[in-house]
Design a protein around this nucleic acid. Structure first.
Lengths: 142, 142
DNA sequence: CACATTTTGTGATAATATAACATATCATTA
DNA sequence: TAATGATATGTTATATTATCACAAAATGTG
């Protein structure tokens, strides 16, 4: 058993070598990675073939511990930025794939409360909005 | 060229046999289907092997025409219920996979305006919330 | 009709994810 | 410390979702 402290929280978990490697990678990259991107980036570090199952199992664990979130609309995994304490939202650009996370603002929190009041029990993952980011809109006008 | 009228809109499109079959199936089912569910359900109707490309091409076309929406977080496709005129939201149960669509309520519309004001151009797809539906919560308590 | 464009048919393959089962490691306690 | 049970890892195979590439057929237009 080991204690780990992230920007967001301190948890007592079995953070084994593989799990730690995946978590550290995601923390370093500060961007969403697909499971297979993780495999490719981890390979040089670990120095042997990495089977998908290994990575998916690490990710499952880290998701359970809320150390990592999954962007279900794009099948990618990321750590939330420092200080993120609640589900929040992600804006995902369909052109350049950039993802920007931000804390829930008032209307979204209100919406979440409304949904909860209706009896539907929301999970703690960020809500994902899709569209075109400002940079890509500018590129389109050139 | 053909004119088609759905509950939501009238568009002039090349609604060929395959495309019409996919659209009708989704309208009949009134629930999200995966591409491969569509293949399986369409097979008896069409009476020969259906390649995935056929279905994905029909779906691409129907998505472009906004006759169908894709639930990106679960890789399924559905027609919006009658009278749906704006993006709205879907509540997706992670236990039983039930999906309920509803029109955007005020806070969500406000949130969308906020995002738009920040310079991010939202698409017109429903926002997808994940959690556990009321029925499944009750089942859990048994 | 002739020609260009769009749609369809088909095989192959890419990308994402899980099932199943054997082996190894860790934790507990007799 | 050895026995035991629980947890984690290694590995193969396979399921699921989606796209590429190219040929053939159908359709629209001058």
């Amino acid at each position: 058993m080991q204690v780990i402290t992230t920007e967001c929280q301190t948890v007592e978990v079995k953070l084994t070598g593989n799990r730690k490697a995946v978590l550290l990678l995601l923390q370093q990259q500060q961007r969403p990675l697909s499971a297979y991107e993780i495999i490719d980036l981890l390979r040089p570090q670990i120095g042997r073939i990495i089977h998908p199952m290994l990575v998916y199992r690490c990710l499952d664990f880290l998701l359970e511990q809320h150390l990592v979130v999954k962007l279900v609309s794009v099948n990618k995994f990321m750590v939330l930025p420092e200080g993120a304490t609640e589900p929040g939202q992600c804006l995902i650009c369909e052109r350049c794939q950039a993802v920007t996370f931000s804390q829930s603002s008032n209307p979204l929190q209100q919406q979440r409360r409304k949904i909860a009041a209706s009896g539907f029990k929301l999970n703690q993952q960020p809500v994902e909005f899709h569209g075109i980011c400002q940079a890509c809109q500018k590129d389109d006008n050139k």
